[in-house]
Design a binder for these strands. Structure first.
Lengths: 118, 118
DNA sequence: ATAAATCATCGTAATATTGCAATATAAATA
DNA sequence: TATTTATATTGCAATATTACGATGATTTAT
């Protein structure tokens, strides 16, 4: 059987730049309150193990582990094993690339705020 | 019938701060290549109408309209009606709040890069 | 060796997201 | 008025995400 429609529920990626796809992946990883809270906490303590995070969040340990994996896959955090715990830290370079791109938006918008949508 | 489990597939929001929820919403809106491309394009041309965007993307018009609505709901863009077209623009203040928060992460990480995950 | 602690993985249930055709709406134009 | 242009809405199919219990793997402590 042949489908009339394209595959649905799936993001089309063939016409975006690599950078757009990568940065969108980073934004997507940031796009959940739990992951925002995890990063807030990592910044706050400057180093962290998972059980520490589990206590901070209203989520079960497997769910936190899953969120950490997504942050890791997006490149936002790295995890290093230390004994029977894992130390998770933010990757400053990845964060910098993300903020750098959005920063250029900000620069260009401010100079144009008069000419747009008045 | 009573469920043993909590509602699944739904984000728990009752234990996060308002700011975490709001910023995660903004990040989520940014978390799709099409929406990243839309914003890149808006920045590039400094003002835009939707049909312009439709031509830039590999998506049908209703899909673009839907993405624009999500950016709007997150507060990242505003749309003003101009005749039979709509002028969409980035909201500089919302972008600034988002970048401001992530910027504080960056500040704190850089000073701590020696003490974490070595 | 056994138990406890820490974290990951698997399976699964429920909701959310993505995309498009069809259609609706509203303004501009012929 | 009728048609074109620009955008939004609805309905639906398919995949993705979120969450948790159960379980596995590994390290530390007893």
């Amino acid at each position: 059987m042949q489908y009339k429609y394209m595959k649905m529920g799936v993001t089309k990626t063939e016409s975006y730049t690599e950078k757009q796809i990568r940065l969108a992946g980073i934004a997507k990883a940031l796009g959940h309150p739990a992951r925002m809270a995890i990063l807030d906490h990592l910044v706050k303590v400057n180093a962290c193990i998972c059980s520490d995070i589990v206590e901070e969040l209203p989520l079960a340990q497997p769910t936190v582990s899953q969120h950490l994996r997504e942050l890791k896959q997006a490149g936002l955090i790295r995890g290093t094993v230390e004994g029977n715990a894992v130390c998770y830290c933010i990757d400053a370079q990845v964060l910098a690339e993300f903020l750098g791109h959005l920063g250029t938006w900000q620069d260009r918008i401010q100079t144009a705020s008069e000419t747009c949508c008045k």
